[in-house]
Design a protein around this nucleic acid. Structure first.
Ligand SMILES: [Mn+2]
Ligand SMILES: [Mn+2]
Ligand SMILES: [Zn+2]
Ligand SMILES: [Zn+2]
Lengths: 137, 137
DNA sequence: TCTAGGATTTGGACTCTGTCTAACTCCCGG
DNA sequence: CCGGGAGTTAGACAGAGTCCAAATCCTAGA
């Protein structure tokens, strides 16, 4: 997908079994066209920037729907809010604690070894690696 | 430290430049005697179990003070609440997403390789590795 | 022992993220 | 041109965490 348009957002949604509505397309477009990690609040602001038309409830409903359907991923690094990530491929995160800036780290280059065997009857849902950094004093 | 008592909590606090008050000792004792990952709310419940004497404000003040002074660590795995960890040594976490159960993974056995160089002027604050698991379907 | 003053604690108001609900709107198939 | 299910909405609500000004505690002098 070379460029993100509202039209291919609709296709993307259908491909994930999501009925593409106006609001859902706008929210998907906000995330995918920027390829950034956004909080619900930021999504809300972006989507309602020109003309308010999407409610808080719909933003949350939609983000949770996207999560369920595997269209996006959530990143939990900040105790005060969740970030939503349009990149669902395996990757890790660099978190700048002061600014809140969140950057992807490609998983191809990173090797994690020596993890203990999982407890019986458990399966891995995901492995999150977060490198927390700050500006040097 | 073979066994945790309120007395050696006072020493521990002093060693971290924290004036040991009754409330601070109780809160430290809750965390260190159990060696568990506790939420602020759980700390509050434990500390006030027999006889209510510590306010919510003090629980949060104290946990944040302990964090600042490096006595404890926070673990961010659940979007709805922070866990406080008396183990400040390098280690990772196994998180059981359904129950909320949080377990330590010794860092000695785990190798993380191939992380990219940090951006200029940045230094690492910490590396968090979280293995999210769930009960097999 | 008494006391002033800084440190600590406190209740409760407040903020913020996120959820819930019941009513409303939209849209499509017949 | 309906009827009805899917989607959206405003606003109430819940829970974690912060803030504040007042009350309390504790200790270093006198
Ligand atoms: Mn629009
Ligand atoms: Mn007590
Ligand atoms: Zn990412
Ligand atoms: Zn731990």
């Amino acid at each position: 997908m070379l460029q993100y348009s509202r039209d291919n957002m609709a296709e993307l949604l259908r491909a994930h079994d999501i009925n593409p509505t106006h609001q859902r397309i706008e929210i998907a477009y906000a995330l995918f066209s920027r390829q950034e990690h956004l909080s619900a609040d930021q999504v809300m602001t972006i989507v309602n920037d020109r003309h308010a038309e999407t409610s808080k409830a719909t933003v949350y409903n939609t983000l949770n729907l996207f999560l369920e359907k595997g269209l996006i991923r959530e990143v939990i690094v900040d105790p005060s809010k969740v970030f939503y990530d349009p990149n669902t491929g395996p990757h890790h995160h660099l978190y700048e604690v002061d600014s809140g800036q969140l950057t992807d780290i490609d998983a191809d280059d990173v090797r994690i070894e020596g993890l203990p065997a999982l407890p019986k009857g458990m399966e891995t849902v995901g492995i999150d690696l977060i490198v927390r950094v700050k500006r040097t004093a």
